[in-house]
Design a binder for these strands. Structure first.
Lengths: 228, 228
DNA sequence: CGTGTATTCAATAAAACTATTGAATAGTTG
DNA sequence: CAACTATTCAATAGTTTTATTGAATACACG
């Protein structure tokens, strides 16, 4: 094998990864799987794809070694294999946020326009936690909270928040987080809290970004085999 | 705009980046541009593509905001805009090296089989530099060396190495580096040096990996407008 | 052991991507 | 300003990707 063939083969192998990442639905699936493991049907539900189409996208990701799969009961559970897959996705996401003006515009336009939603970085977030006087609010679905969450956070899924506002202390600043920077639950939660007279702000990124830098994670063990 | 449209649009924008990365030639171009700026013709030469085809690939990268371009004389010079583009490429590259067995196999099979080429990480490399007694050898083309190199390294492009072996001290350990982990110049240089009785080893990664983590970089200012 | 169910497969048509070819363009240089 | 030249554009044919549909499969569970 000569040098040119070698290079071509190496880049061709690497492009299998980028080809697998080159579809918007598959990116969304990866961001979803960063929260934990999901069955095909659940992924289809979350991404508004047909089950057959979801399955095909998952095959593409599996062939590129970007997801692992195990059977649990009747369900195939897909998950991200390493932190490295999330790290690659994160670096692409950050590149997009920094570089593509359209993304910034989309996010800003879509965020609750009435309330200026403020956000903090993970570093600033940690400083505020250390200083006390903050309540950490996880607004993701309960199963995702159970699969892993920031220690001492309170789980109130967004669709229950309106009814459970009293559980939150009014004196503290409330910092809400969800799946990632494009997850709008946190924005909506902050808007709702501000309207109800709370002091609230969102974490810019999401739970996986917290976990990937090695910060502590709390897991609730629940046997949810076959359901999640 | 509802939540679903928002998500679709965000992931669709992000997939413009991954689509632009989803071609082996474009990955090779990015790795090349990490060394400095190049004209279209030079990129075509390095990648063994036709000029027209190279230009089209560059348009794709430009539309995805992954490269910047300026005219210098008759030549269009392409370059990577930020460290972020290289960082994203690096994380994909590392994901591939870790995850795709075929890549590891390709690299191992292609490396000079007669001599076991050993490599050091950047951290270990720095420790050895600090301890003295090492000679740092840059085997890339001279223009790339001039565009940026590791301080105190000696530039001997690989194709001149055989004739210039005497310039290297035999007492020191020689650590060779080139463009990146898939650049075989460093391997060949190490093999040549070992055969000539030197103690030699390669840096696992390349110059851009050194630069991207903020380590010092030396630049030789040379007016090579129109030539590089 | 057969039934039920989640998932995958296969076929297909539409859309997107790719390399090639040759012409067009834009900007420099004399 | 005219000639030159590096680059880009346009057209095209071949290939790959994608979503849809409906059937097949594989496995668990009664």
């Amino acid at each position: 094998m000569n040098k040119k063939d070698f290079k071509n083969k190496v880049y061709s192998e690497l492009s299998k990864i980028t080809k697998a990442l080159s579809n918007p639905h598959r990116l969304e699936i990866i961001e979803l799987l960063a929260q934990g493991d999901y069955s095909v049907e659940q992924i289809a539900l979350q991404t508004s794809l047909s089950v057959a189409n979801t399955s095909q996208h998952l095959q593409v990701l599996k062939n590129a070694q970007l997801v692992d799969v195990t059977r649990i009961g009747n369900f195939m559970h897909y998950r991200l294999p390493h932190t490295n897959v999330f790290k690659a996705w994160k670096s692409i996401r950050e590149l997009g946020i920094e570089r593509i003006a359209a993304i910034d515009k989309l996010v800003n336009d879509f965020r609750q326009p009435k309330y200026k939603i403020e956000s903090v970085s993970i570093d600033e977030f940690r400083r505020r936690i250390a200083s006390g006087r903050v309540t950490i609010l996880d607004v993701r679905p309960e199963t995702e909270f159970n699969a892993g969450h920031i220690p001492n956070s309170i789980s109130i899924p967004f669709d229950q928040l309106q009814d459970r506002l009293r559980e939150l202390p009014k004196r503290n600043e409330i910092i809400a987080y969800c799946r990632g920077p494009f997850c709008v639950f946190a924005d909506e939660a902050v808007a709702m809290l501000i309207q109800a007279g709370y002091k609230a702000i969102r974490l810019q990124e999401g739970f996986p970004d917290w976990a990937v830098v090695g910060l502590p994670v709390k897991v609730n063990h629940k046997n949810n085999y076959g359901r999640n």
